[in-house]
Nucleic acid binder design. Structure first.
Lengths: 189, 189
DNA sequence: TTTCGTAGAGAACGTGCGTTCTCTCGGCTA
DNA sequence: TAGCCGAGAGAACGCACGTTCTCTACGAAA
């Protein structure tokens, strides 16, 4: 029951909260529901996460890790920077087609609590900035001008909200096609 | 006290709720705060809007009208379809730089209540679909292939979330630059 | 075996909010 | 002038949720 068990419990709670928050929204899910789903006592839950806000921050940080890993895995099969960039949109394409897809958790959380919880706003912004840097590195590696990077990042963001609200997973393919045009135009100049 | 006054009261309530919801988030603002801000009795408020959900729908429909008007006004000065498309991003650019900008109200509302309120999800989707059609018409008018339209719409969506979360109003300029490349590439093929 | 500490289970508390109810007052009618 | 209708003001209600408190029971140490 030592450290490893505590970590396992943390992960269980975070995983349960993540699923519930993402599916139903944050304020629509009570702490007690998280407790039931994670099968842990309320006391333990509050000893690990002193508030719902802290739990939410942990959930979002966990999502950041999963997102980074997913992007990296998608890029692993690519050989050059251009393909690694396009792998982002392929990754999005698969994600959008999952049954439980309900948009970007960071965008949703920011929309729901960004004005009320500075912590949530910070975590969401951190995730976006990290992604923008990732894209910027690949653009640099591809030898394209730096101005291309924010354009590609905007395409990825727009695909997520479009897929979520309009319910069109094709948004990933559209974003990918646009990215191809933008990259090739940038490289040929 | 007759019809015109009721309309004025409706507008007052909607305007007050819009500002409060957009600034602080929907669930963070109580009905009583809306009542105070609009200076109307609770009874009248509930006689005009039978529930908070109905009020929110009215607010979002009102926002749809304002968005359409803003886009139309920006396009009014343009001479051809290409410039009308680019006027969208100029409109976004001005909007992002306003002090009270806090992202797209439809994206925020959808993230907060889309999973809980079907009405909110519908209104948000309607707005996005209407905008997509608007872009599609301009793309058609410009003589570009239809596949360009969703790409331009995705750029606009992505610019909004990027500007909101990352706090970078430049997203509008980046999206505009990308749009220029995409349009010209589509027209020259 | 007894005692002490700890952790689990959930009751309880305070608060806030959406919604409804009640009371009162002002104006119109006979 | 007396009675009635409608609307405004806000008190009240019921509920849900975040957080804390209490009680119980079990296991380890002496």
């Amino acid at each position: 029951m030592s450290t490893s068990n505590v970590l396992a419990e943390r992960e269980q709670i975070v995983a349960a909260a993540d699923r519930l928050f993402y599916t139903h929204g944050i304020q629509a899910v009570g702490i007690d529901r998280v407790r039931t789903a994670s099968g842990v006592s309320l006391k333990k839950l509050y000893s690990l996460f002193p508030s719902k806000d802290a739990l939410l921050v942990a959930v979002l940080r966990h999502r950041t890790g999963e997102w980074d890993a997913g992007i990296a895995e998608a890029a692993a099969q690519a050989t050059d920077a251009r393909e690694k960039i396009l792998a982002i949109y392929d990754f999005l394409n698969e994600w959008f087609r999952q049954d439980d897809f309900r948009g970007c958790a960071f965008i949703n959380s920011f929309g729901e609590l960004g004005a009320v919880s500075p912590n949530v706003a910070t975590v969401a912004r951190d995730q976006k900035v990290t992604f923008q840097r990732y894209v910027a590195n690949l653009v640099d590696e591809a030898g394209a001008p730096a101005s291309l990077a924010p354009q590609l990042a905007i395409l990825a963001e727009g695909a997520q909200t479009t897929a979520a609200i309009s319910g069109t997973p094709d948004a990933a393919a559209h974003a990918r096609a646009a990215a191809v045009v933008l990259i090739d135009a940038a490289l040929s100049s």
